[in-house]
Amino acid sequence: MRNYYIEINEYLYKLIKNTIFYDRNGILLNGVVLSITDILVLKALGDDKEKKMYEIIDDLGLDRNTFATIINKLLQQQFIIKTKSKRDKRVQILSLTEKGQEAFCEISDKEKKILFSLLNDFSFNEEKAILKFLVKLDMLHKEKSKEQEEMQ
C-alpha cells in the first residue's frame, strides 16, 4: 500500500464533504447566498463576457432543468441578463450585468487570495507535485466521462 494512502483518502473525503456542504448551504457574497454551481455559471460568463446557454450547459455538464433553475435565480438576483441571438432567435445568450461583473471580480479575488495563502507554505517542487496530482485527477475524470458516454 502507498505511504500516505489512508491520510490522502481521508482528506479527499473531507474535501468532497465540505464542497457538498457549501453547495447546499451556499456562500455569502454581497448579502446574497450563492451555491458553488451558481458561482461556476458566473465564472463561465465572466471569462467570456457572454455565452450561449447551451455552451455553458455543455461546459459545466449540467442538465437543462438544473441549469434553468440556476439561471432563473441569477436573473432574479440581477447578476445576469438573457437575450436572443441576433443571428438565430432560437439561441439564448447570457451575459453578466454590472452587479454580476462585480461579483465575478470579487469571486476571482477571493479565490486568488485563498490559493496564494495556501501555496505560501509550499516549496516550488511541492507546488509542482500538487499540480501533477490535480492534472492526474482531471485526466481520470475525463477518462471516466468518456467511458460513461461510450456505454450510453
Score class of each variant (00 low, 15 high):
residue 127 E to W: 04
residue 18 N to C: 04
residue 105 C to N: 15
residue 73 K to S: 05
residue 73 K to N: 12
residue 39 I to F: 07
residue 83 T to F: 03
residue 9 N to W: 07
residue 55 E to G: 02
residue 145 S to M: 10
residue 87 R to C: 01
residue 21 F to W: 10
residue 5 Y to S: 13
residue 1 M to R: 10
residue 120 N to F: 06
residue 78 Q to G: 05
residue 135 V to C: 08
residue 111 E to R: 09
residue 144 K to D: 01
residue 15 L to I: 13
residue 105 C to Q: 13
residue 73 K to F: 09
residue 100 G to F: 11
residue 57 I to V: 15
residue 44 A to P: 04
residue 70 I to D: 02
residue 72 N to H: 09
residue 21 F to R: 11
residue 80 I to W: 06
residue 129 A to L: 13
residue 129 A to T: 09
residue 62 L to D: 02
residue 46 G to P: 07
residue 80 I to P: 10
residue 63 D to R: 04
residue 71 I to M: 05
residue 58 D to P: 00
residue 133 F to K: 05
residue 46 G to V: 08
residue 26 G to S: 06
residue 126 E to Q: 15
residue 73 K to H: 06
residue 37 T to K: 14
residue 68 A to I: 06
residue 105 C to L: 15
residue 130 I to P: 01
residue 6 I to M: 10
residue 123 S to I: 07
residue 13 Y to V: 09
residue 24 R to L: 14
residue 110 K to D: 07
residue 106 E to L: 13
residue 131 L to V: 09
residue 67 F to Y: 14
residue 17 K to I: 08
residue 151 M to G: 01
residue 39 I to C: 06
residue 81 I to V: 08
residue 74 L to T: 05
residue 72 N to Y: 08
residue 76 Q to N: 14
residue 16 I to K: 11
residue 146 K to S: 11
residue 8 I to Y: 09
residue 152 Q to S: 01
residue 54 Y to T: 04
residue 131 L to A: 11
residue 115 L to D: 00
residue 101 Q to D: 08
